[in-house]
Amino acid sequence: MGLFFVIPFVAFALILLFSVVKIVPQGREFTVERFGRYTKTLNPGIHILTPFIERVGRRMNMMEQVLDVPTQEVITKDNAMVKVDGIVFIQVIDAAAAAYRVDNLNYAIAQLCMTNLRTVVGSMELDEVLSQRDSINTRLLHVIDSATAPWGVKVARIEIKDLTPPVDITNAMARQMKAERERRAVITEADGEKQAAIARAEGAKQSAILESEGRKEAAFRDAEAREREAEAEARATAMVSEAIAVGDVNAINYFVAQKYVEAFAELARSPQQKTVIVPSEMSALVGTIAGVGELVNMTRQSHDAPRAPRPAAQQQPAPARRTAPPRATGVPPTE
């Protein structure tokens, strides 16, 4: 009989204990109702309620939550039909207001987002809707956050998740994008050809300038070489003239022999000569040199001999006597 009374008593005590002692986990808040009326909010931790008088009313999630906005069709300002959906991030700030000022908080916020989304998107053209998502998000956030503030809810952000225009508009946009890409490609190609032509023209200009400078430098160096060659020839001629004046036969022989050899060399280099026969005996060259030497000796003796004075009336210019120099007896070249 004693056990029969103890077991119900223990069960009643456990039920009473669990109904009085409440443990609130982190990120949650419980509302307390006394005879159906809200009295206070329990923060995370352990709490003891008045038995049979107080009870937990609502268990509110105080963490940030993500709500899905269902897909809906919206008509834009330029009468284009688009499908729009999104997501909204909310956080309960006041547990009592969120519990007792609105029924089914998540559903209410979702419906509020859908209606405002139709309003915002409907006031814009299709191109603006597709290119100004940030503007749509900002406008929706401002409107919905103001509307949910009395509910004790803070809307953190709203994002447009998907925008789907009709198929025909999508195809037109694809063609437009393709045409724009082709236009950019043609412009880029033309610009490249222009730059290449400019580079080639600049290269040709630089090449012409360098070539003209090269010709100028070559002409200057050729002129300088000819000038130096002429100076050397003049010095050689002056030295030979001085040697002839003093009667140096060796210098005369060297000069004549050099010219003779140069003449044979030019004859051999002539493009019209296929065969050149050089005489085996160079006696003609020696004879020519000896004849020139004799001519020089005679000229010097005639200048050194004294002349008898003549009267002025009888002095008449005697005809000049010319003596032909001996010819060289060389054999002419034969083809």
Rank of each mutant, 00 (worst) to 15 (best):
I144K: 09
I144E: 06
S146R: 14
A147Y: 08
T148K: 08
T148D: 11
A149T: 12
P150K: 05
P150V: 02
W151H: 04
W151P: 04
W151T: 04
G152M: 08
G152R: 02
V153R: 02
V153H: 02
K154W: 05
V155Y: 03
A156F: 04
R157C: 04
R157F: 05
R157E: 09
R157S: 09
E159Y: 03
E159F: 06
I160C: 06
K161H: 09
D162F: 02
D162S: 15
L163M: 08
T164L: 14
P165R: 06
P166Y: 01
D168M: 07
T170S: 05
A172Q: 15
A172E: 15
A172K: 14
M173R: 15
M173Y: 11
A174V: 09
R175Q: 13
R175P: 02
R175F: 00
R175W: 00
Q176I: 07
Q176K: 15
M177F: 00
M177S: 14
K178E: 10
K178C: 02
K178W: 01
A179N: 12
A179M: 11
A179S: 13
E180C: 08
R181D: 12
R181V: 11
E182F: 06
R183E: 14
R184S: 10
R184M: 13
A185Y: 00
V186L: 13
V186C: 05
I187V: 12
T188A: 14
E189A: 15
A190T: 12
D191R: 13
E193K: 12
Q195G: 08
Q195N: 12
A196P: 04
I198H: 05
I198E: 13
A199K: 11
R200N: 10
A201W: 00
G203L: 06
G203M: 04
G203K: 10
A204K: 02
K205M: 04
K205E: 10
K205G: 08
Q206C: 01
S207K: 08
S207I: 04
S207R: 09
A208D: 01
I209V: 03
L210E: 03
L210R: 02
E211V: 01
E211C: 01
E211A: 02
E213M: 03
E213L: 01
R215Y: 02
R215S: 01
A218S: 05
A218K: 03
A219V: 08
A219F: 04
F220R: 06
F220K: 07
F220W: 05
R221W: 05
D222C: 00
A223R: 11
R226C: 07
R228N: 13
R228T: 10
E229S: 01
A230K: 10
A230Q: 09
E231Y: 03
A232E: 14
A232L: 10
A234K: 12
A236M: 10
T237G: 01
T237F: 03
A238M: 01
M239T: 13
M239F: 07
M239I: 03
V240R: 11
V240P: 14
V240N: 12
S241G: 07
S241L: 11
E242C: 05
E242F: 00
E242R: 09
A243G: 15
A243W: 00
A243K: 07
I244S: 11
I244R: 07
I244V: 15
A245I: 05
A245W: 00
V246L: 09
V246Q: 09
G247A: 04
D248P: 15
V249R: 15
V249H: 10
V249Q: 13
V249P: 14
N250W: 00
A251R: 06
I252F: 00
N253F: 04
V256M: 10
V256N: 06
